[in-house]
Amino acid sequence: MRGATPETVREARESGDPLPGTNGFAGHLDGALARDVLGRQPIFGTPDDWGFSPSDVDAADPTPVPAGHVRDDDGDRRVWSLPDPPVATDDAAAIDALRAAIDNSLTGLDGEGLAVAFSGGVDSALVARGAPDAPCYVVGFPDAHDVAAARAAAETMDRDLRVVELTHEDLERAVPEVVAATGRTNAMDVCIALPLYLVAERAAADGFDRLALGQGADELFGGYAKVVEPAADDRVDATTVRGATREVIESLPDQLERDVLALRAAGVEPATPLLADGVVEAALPLPDHLLATPDERKVALRRAASEWLPPSLVETDKKAVQYGSLVSRELDRLARQAGFKRRMDDHLGQYIRSLA
């Protein structure tokens, strides 16, 4: 069992408690496979032939256990569902609860073998606060937004920053490695996984075996543009900010499977303190106006962080990693240079498959 003791998972299975105080778990338990409610630990195969990545499984088609499910010889059975608590009505109490949950999750994060993936935004700055002795790594092309933002933030926090400066050759080499690790060839998944893989690869080469990331913050706290005015955005079905945020949270298992597989293939184990059960539990009751407004996203997270971080970091907007690192732009450039023009259907996906 990864991420929790068998006793903890057994008790959670018997009680149906979806957030039993872990950072996610998966493994073999009493003749069955189990995966936590947010899918923070992926697991594949059958109770007789299983592993933590598809390559661990001998079966021709190793399928992932769905998040929140137990898989036994009779198939998949949902055991855990994400809670749907009442909306918090006391803003100050909700933010205090969130701040306490984050502080608790960050306690003990630091330690030997840990590095921090750092983009200069509030998410990674919070994680870096919990690991004051760990070096910070940023990945991107020389003129990338994330590189400039990370340099400024690292100077503000007086942190050791190591820049993983990318080249086209890095992308061409890493694409087939990411595809092999994740089993995915669609352009969006590969563009997201590439910078994670490359920064993790450098951290592993420097001797680190854990990489702390701010994953989950955008999903839990209203970080996406599509949740701001959901009734007018066809990318979500919900008509409220809280409902749209819930939709985004429910997309986490698929995203985390991709990211965890890429990071492990690069040689590190991810540490995601902002996805700890306590933080999730504090995030779920947040009302619309503490998630996202037309003027601000991740409202509650920023207010919680303001106790620890300077305003310049609390207020900083962050680009998605594939854009902030310029990986998406430069992979598209390589595709067009190779003859995969934008007028072609799925030109970037075709290029990725040609490399894989």
Rank of each mutant, 00 (worst) to 15 (best):
G3Q: 02
T8W: 05
R10I: 01
E11I: 06
A12H: 03
S15D: 02
N23P: 00
D30V: 03
L38N: 11
R40Y: 02
I43R: 13
G45P: 09
D48Y: 01
D49P: 03
F52V: 02
S53C: 11
P54N: 15
P54V: 03
D56G: 04
D56W: 01
D56N: 15
A67T: 04
G68A: 05
G75T: 06
P85N: 09
P85E: 07
P86D: 13
D91Y: 00
A92L: 02
A94W: 00
I95P: 00
A101I: 01
I102C: 00
I102M: 10
S105R: 11
L109I: 10
L114N: 07
L114Q: 06
G121Q: 05
D123E: 11
P132G: 13
C136F: 12
C136T: 15
F141N: 01
A148H: 13
R151D: 13
A152D: 14
A153E: 11
A153D: 08
A154I: 02
E155L: 07
E155N: 15
M157A: 15
D158I: 01
D158K: 04
D160C: 05
V163G: 07
V163S: 04
T167P: 05
E172R: 15
A174G: 10
A174R: 07
A180N: 12
A180I: 01
G183R: 06
R184T: 01
N186R: 09
L194F: 11
L194Y: 09
P195I: 06
P195C: 10
R202C: 00
A205S: 15
A205M: 06
G207V: 03
F208N: 13
F208V: 04
G214Y: 00
G216K: 04
A217E: 12
D218E: 15
G223L: 01
D234K: 02
D234M: 03
R235F: 06
G243K: 07
T245F: 11
E247A: 06
E247H: 08
V248G: 03
E250I: 03
R258M: 07
G267D: 04
A271Y: 13
A276C: 03
D277I: 11
V280M: 08
L284H: 15
P287K: 05
D288T: 01
H289K: 08
L291D: 06
T293M: 05
D295P: 06
A300H: 00
L301K: 01
S306W: 00
L313W: 04
A320M: 13
S325Y: 06
V327A: 08
L331Y: 10
L331Q: 12
D332M: 14
A335W: 12
A338Y: 10
K341M: 02
D345V: 07
D345P: 00
Q350H: 11
S354R: 08
